[in-house]
Design a binder for these strands. Structure first.
Lengths: 196, 196
DNA sequence: CCTACCATGTAAGACGTTACATGATTGG
DNA sequence: CCAATCATGTAACGTCTTACATGGTAGG
């Protein structure tokens, strides 16, 4: 269900087409909740069917069209209900922890490679999130700039503070994963050293 | 695909029925990768169809049966291939970060409740994982004990070390989430104090 | 005219959730 | 005999991935 609210969060700032949403998605809320186009377009249809958004077809050139969506009152209250209601947590499903816990079956090289790739993976995510956080604090992220344009002066800091909070969660997660894998590498060396 | 390898990890220790697996699952690998019965039984069928495990029906009483599965050579090499191969990472999809980043739409009370429930949720997980880790280090977890019985003396520490590594990942994750939400609560108070 | 970008999807299948469904056996 | 536990699922639905599919428009 979160995809729906990620899309509403963007659309609440102003009307947009599916294509606009897709582009903005990748440079804003998509950092927190990934979704490919093949999920976005059908979800917009479902949201329209549910009365949360409405789309108007606009002409483009002679034959082209684009459908511009805006949030309805029902969509706004659904969004607020999600924001004010409890969040449901998914059950634990951590492939990396699972693999780590049974790594005795892997070769020492494969174990090391696994942890190194874990570090590389989370380093990549971390870099992106840190860049994004920089753009948020500098208020230079396009989606945030649009959001701040329609925000009363007194609330702007508040909006930025929550964006920062969201990204900090991911950043701390990534740092924890990296530190864990590094400790794992040290442990591997100790295990191998013992055999030698 | 991880469910398959979670099940193989258990079955490799010794033959078991779906029911045995389900019970052991919840007190061992299920802490790392959750799965309900309704997923376990069908997955065992698929694994059998794929030739990774074989089941034999045993009689129980006069009419009852239970199917006891064991890992085939193909299953063993599939498991080792997974363990020695690269892990594929899922794209980011963090409902809590998403909600946090747009929390300006929630009431201050709802924002506080959200963070408090986040702490409660991860505290609950943390407690379970810490208990489990204690049972692992004390070598009193039943699944681990069965595993160690068939493990050469020299490898036992290694097996335990990897279990510890896996659980530490989850424990650190939980602690990070709790610390983050606590900082979030402090931030909320600062935001509200500013308005007063 | 052609390339980059605008614009919108479908189809098939894997994975996961929730709820429901059924019957046998063992121990007290 | 009755309750707890053993034992094995199905059905319906929603989410997500991967791959494919199609055409229009704007600018150089």
């Amino acid at each position: 269900m979160s995809l729906r609210y990620a899309l509403l969060a963007l659309l609440r700032v102003g009307p947009m087409s599916g294509y606009d949403l897709k582009l903005q998605f990748d440079t804003s809320v998509g950092h927190l909740w990934h979704a490919p186009d093949s999920q976005i377009y059908p979800e917009l249809r479902k949201m329209q069917d549910a009365g949360l958004i409405e789309g108007e077809d606009q002409v483009r050139g002679t034959r082209g069209t684009r459908r511009v969506y805006h949030v309805t009152d029902a969509g706004e209250s659904d969004y607020l209900a999600w924001m004010n209601g409890p969040l449901s947590y998914a059950r634990v499903r951590e492939p990396a922890s699972l693999k780590a816990a049974y790594l005795e079956a892997a070769t020492p090289e494969a174990a090391r490679t696994f942890l190194e790739e874990h570090i590389a993976h989370w380093r990549g995510e971390l870099d992106q999130w840190e860049d994004e956080l920089t753009r948020i604090e500098g208020r230079s992220n396009p989606a945030l700039m649009r959001r701040l344009e329609i925000t009363p002066e007194d609330d702007k800091d508040r909006v930025v503070a929550f964006k920062r909070l969201g990204y900090e969660n991911l950043i701390e997660r990534a740092r924890t994963e990296i530190a864990w894998a590094q400790r794992g590498l040290t442990m591997l060396e100790r295990l191998q050293g013992r055999d030698a």
